[in-house]
């Protein structure tokens, strides 16, 4: 069994004492190098889960460990956040400095990286997200997708093991969404960074190696996208759609065409359909 980078054991979380549980009794682990999508409609607990995974929230019951460190212990907090970086939804509300270079440096300054090491790490991080040319620009002049890439660079510079993205593409236009998703995909593939991708876009989930579906604070499905999306009925019950190409595949299969279940994006679906023409 591979090493678990992020692990939740019997985790429950309530925002206020005596209130209902936002997360109830969850067991989940993310292995090194995995890229997992977490799906769920609003209020399913997926954002709460994200904030539990790097110690922004401390579980009401159960334990969350990051690289073996318990998030409930105060001494671990900063080491954990260094290991598990987080990107949030609103691109405007997570950049701190008025120059890209300074913003990427923010995390490094916080964790006490020596000044001489900073420029190289900043440049490497910006290069990894394809934003090196923007190093001296002001964030407010950039597009939403570019801002999210800067936010990712700010985390990358801290050399994390895991990247948790909490609906990082929800406020972007389709172009920005693709920009950000493919950068994260590349980081996962090339640098082996563990990715937890929280989203409500099915197309994105279909491109991850693993999909976890949440509903009402529980995990209801967990598996490869092919498996998860075959349960279209269950998905609809949770007010989630299956990706359009999966729905099309289902429809074609029900009419007797043998379409592979792996065809979840437009290109591979086109290839499958062409076989029949």
């Amino acid at each position: 069994m591979e090493e678990a980078i992020l692990q939740a054991k019997n985790v429950s979380y309530a925002y206020e004492e005596g209130e209902g549980l936002a997360i109830s009794d969850i067991n989940l682990s993310f292995r090194r190098g995995e890229m997992t999508a977490i799906l769920g409609h609003n209020g399913s607990g997926k954002s709460t889960l994200a904030k539990l995974l790097n110690g922004l929230y401390i579980p009401t019951a159960g334990t969350v460990t990051v690289c073996g460190m318990d998030t409930a212990l105060d001494d671990n907090t900063w080491e954990i956040r260094k290991k598990a970086g987080m990107v949030f939804q609103n691109p405007d509300n997570q950049l701190v400095a008025s120059i890209v270079r300074d913003d990427v440096a923010f995390g490094l300054e916080n964790i006490g990286v020596p000044t001489e090491e900073m420029p190289a790490r900043i440049e490497a991080a910006l290069r990894a997200v394809g934003m090196l040319d923007f190093i001296d620009r002001a964030p407010h002049m950039l597009s939403g997708g570019q801002k999210q890439r800067i936010a990712i660079a700010g985390i990358l510079a801290m050399q994390p093991q895991a990247l948790i993205l909490d609906e990082a593409t929800a406020m972007l236009d389709p172009k920005g969404r693709e920009e950000v998703f493919s950068i994260v995909e590349k980081l996962n593939r090339e640098q082996g960074i563990t990715v937890v991708w929280i989203t409500h876009f099915m197309e994105e989930a279909a491109r991850c190696g693993r999909v976890v579906v949440m509903d009402g604070g529980h995990i209801v499905m967990d598996g490869e996208p092919q498996e998860v999306f075959t349960r279209a009925e269950d998905m609809r019950r949770m007010r989630l759609d299956v990706p359009p190409m999966v729905a099309l595949g289902d429809l074609l299969r029900s009419r007797g065409m043998k379409i592979s279940r792996d065809a979840m994006d437009i290109d591979s679906m086109a290839r499958e359909v062409l076989k029949w023409l």
């Binding site: 922004l56 900063w78 260094k82 405007d92 509300n93 997570q94 701190v96 490094l108 300054e109 916080n110």
Partner: peptide, 27 residues
């Protein structure tokens, strides 16, 4: 105010804990 809340959360997620033990990019 909403932005301030978001930003505080994002800063904490990036290990911000005040001026103590902070190094600086610019010397």
């Amino acid at each position: 105010f909403r932005r301030a809340g978001d930003l505080a959360m994002a800063m904490e997620a990036r290990c911000y804990h005040g001026g103590e033990g902070r190094t600086r990019l610019r010397v």
